[in-house]
């Protein structure tokens, strides 16, 4: 979250209830911070499944294909070498490396895409400036609405969070924002 309104809740149940309440009020870009994974929070926020698998899959195929092509190029085309009388283009012998390169490409691309999609590693975030936010990693549960939400209105969100039981409401982000 680059900018938005945050509310502090005391219990995980209140956090899930606040997420449900915010969604019921029409907000869609909701974020939550808790010391541990809270059961039901993802469902309450109706988070969509990441599309990372579909991004990685073509890269895995390309990696495998490139590995096969390289072996063919080296062994059968550029420098034909007779190994024990086997055919120069020996598909069965190329399969282990083809498979391993497919897996390796998928893993590396998966890692890179994961960092790109999540914006990690994030050494500093505006939410860290909010007073008391450090307790999100101890015993408090924070729920926020991103300023990019189509229905975002700072006063309305603050009002909603208070109604949903937030003990404290704070603005995170640049001072000049709405």
């Amino acid at each position: 979250m680059r900018a938005g309104v945050l509310g502090e809740l005391m219990t995980p149940e209140a956090m899930v209830a606040a997420i449900v309440g915010l969604r019921a009020r029409g907000y869609r870009r909701i974020d939550a911070f808790s010391p541990y994974p809270v059961h039901g929070a993802e469902e309450a926020a109706e988070m969509k499944r990441s599309r990372i698998d579909w991004i990685v899959f073509p890269f895995a195929l390309a990696g495998a294909g490139a590995a096969y092509l390289l072996q063919w190029y080296c062994n059968a085309f550029d420098y034909p070498l007779n190994v024990g009388g086997r055919p120069l283009h020996s598909a069965p012998a190329f399969i282990p490396i083809t498979f391993e390169m497919g897996v390796l490409t998928a893993a590396i691309v998966g890692l890179i895409v994961y960092f790109a999609l999540t914006g990690l590693p994030e050494l500093w975030s505006p939410v860290f400036e909010v007073e008391g936010f450090e307790r999100a990693s101890i015993d408090r549960f924070w729920v926020g609405v991103d300023a990019g939400d189509p229905r975002f209105d700072r006063a309305a969100v603050e009002q909603a969070l208070v109604e949903l039981g937030a003990a404290r409401v704070a603005w995170a982000g640049p001072r000049w924002a709405p």
Binding site: G84, R86, P92, A93, I95, P96
Partner: peptide
Amino acid sequence: AYFQFFLIWIAN
């Protein structure tokens, strides 16, 4: 299946 085939194929 593959490794049974592969080892037999390559040892020939």
